[in-house]
Simulated assay, not measured.
Amino acid sequence: MILSSNEKRALLRQQCREALAAHIHERLGLTVAPGRVRLQPSAADGYAWSVSKSQENLLRSNLSNGTVGLYQAIRDALGCSIEAVSPQTLRESDAGSFKSMSDERPRSSKLSKPLGTASENHSFTATIRRLEGANRELTAELERGQIYSEELLEERQQWEAKYRGIYEELDNSKFLVKQLEKDLNRAHMGIAEAMEILKNNQLPEKKESCAQ
Rank of each mutant, 00 (worst) to 15 (best):
S93F: 03
L152W: 06
A22M: 03
D103E: 03
Q179P: 15
E196P: 05
P34W: 01
K110W: 09
Y167C: 11
E56F: 09
A19F: 01
R27M: 03
S209T: 15
P41E: 13
L176A: 15
A77M: 05
A44C: 12
Q15C: 05
H122A: 11
L30N: 07
K207P: 15
N121C: 07
L153R: 08
G66W: 02
C80G: 04
T89Y: 07
R164T: 07
T31V: 08
G35M: 01
L90V: 06
D94F: 04
A48W: 04
K99Q: 11
C80W: 11
K162N: 07
P34R: 03
S81V: 07
R91Q: 09
E56Q: 11
A19V: 02
G35E: 01
R38Y: 11
H25R: 10
W159S: 13
S42P: 02
R36A: 03
S61Y: 06
S86E: 09
E141D: 07
A73M: 01
A33E: 10
C210S: 15
D171I: 15
T127V: 07
A43L: 13
F98Y: 09
A77V: 02
L3R: 13
F175G: 14
K110A: 11
A84E: 04
C80Y: 08
I147T: 13
Q157I: 02
F175W: 14
C210H: 14
S4T: 12
G116T: 08
Q14D: 00
K113T: 12
Q146Y: 10
L115A: 01
R17L: 00
T125G: 05
P41N: 12
D45L: 07
N200K: 14
H122Y: 13
V177Q: 15
F124K: 12
H188R: 07
H23K: 00
R36F: 01
K53Y: 10
Q202E: 14
N65A: 11
P87V: 00
D103W: 07
E160L: 06
Q15S: 05
A48P: 01
E193A: 07
E193L: 09
N201A: 14
L78Y: 06
E104W: 09
G116V: 06
E196K: 03
Q40K: 05
S119Q: 08
N65E: 10
C16S: 00
K113Q: 09
L131I: 03
R60P: 06
E83A: 02
Y71G: 00
R129Q: 08
I24Q: 02
